[in-house]
Write a protein that binds this DNA or RNA. Structure first.
Lengths: 160, 160
DNA sequence: CGCGCTGGGTTGATACGTCAACCAGCGGGT
DNA sequence: ACCCGCTGGTTGACGTATCAACCCAGCGCG
């Protein structure tokens, strides 16, 4: 029977798509909840802290942080003010430019160093170890392919 | 050289994890942006409308909607009031209970019927067609496995 | 009968994300 | 020197998410 449109009759592929969506939603929120509950850090906090901690001297220009996180500048700015209020980071004047740097405070450093091990452990338990090495590899490659397709598509969008 | 902790030396697996994270973030935001720009619907709007449109008579009790979307009741409630203000849904008294039902308005129905085809098309272009059938199948199976692991883990959490 | 409990649903406060407007240095042209 | 525009960054307003508190109908029990 031919229905008006899309409704009800999802094919195999669409159900698989939904499986992916479900998984990514649940996995994301699970990780986020834990890092929130156990360490009082939001996903956004976490990301910023990781990037800063990875940088050589616990500080970097705002622009670099924006590039690393791929966030909008305004989002980053808001996030930084909130984190500054909680004492996790500081805005300091940079040497060469007239633009401020972001500095990871001791408190921020301590926070991320406590949170990261638990987080990676959970990522292993829930994701990496669940798919063994070779399934993980093909999974990641699939992700990379989708990313490439996405980039192509994005270029076309911009050229409008 | 042995560093203090986790910093810098990410293994293969962790880089693959990051690839997945990147992909899921980008794919999600891309889809969301399009459905937003082109049809004035947020991802949340979209989800609610799809569930309602899939239901037999374009209406269902709030609880059922909550179960379908897996959202917190408060989130759903807020979302429904906003959508009601825009005329996409209505809260109506249900027959048997003293609890309200949610009804998909004509406007809401029209909106979702316009948006869905474009959305599914994009999902195909960016995801389903990128991985062919068999890669898609193994991908979905991997997702299902992660979901199962997640459920197990979740049970343990609740039993605290 | 009345009392308290439970569970579905709403409300309010606050944190977060996005968009558009704005502000400040710095080129570059005339 | 002046204006102009660009880029990097901040601000405000608004929509959205989360948490906790609340409201209220039904129900069990004394």
């Amino acid at each position: 029977m031919v229905v008006m449109g899309w409704e009800q009759d999802l094919g195999e592929a669409d159900r698989m798509w939904r499986t992916y969506i479900e998984m990514s939603k649940h996995l994301g929120s699970h990780l986020q909840q834990h890092v929130q509950r156990d360490y009082e850090l939001s996903a956004a906090d976490f990301e910023v802290l990781v990037r800063l901690a990875e940088s050589a001297d616990r500080r970097m220009p705002v622009a670099q942080l924006a590039a690393a996180t791929q966030w909008e500048k305004s989002r980053l700015s808001h996030q930084l003010t909130r984190m500054a209020q909680r004492g996790l980071v500081e805005r300091v004047d940079s040497d060469h430019r007239r633009y401020p740097d972001v500095l990871l405070t001791d408190k921020g450093h301590a926070a991320i160093n406590k949170a990261v091990p638990a987080h990676t452990e959970m990522v292993h338990a829930l994701f990496i170890d669940v798919l063994g090495p070779e399934r993980l590899a093909s999974f990641a490659e699939a992700c990379a392919d989708v990313l490439r397709a996405l980039d192509l598509h994005r270029e076309q969008d911009c050229s409008l």
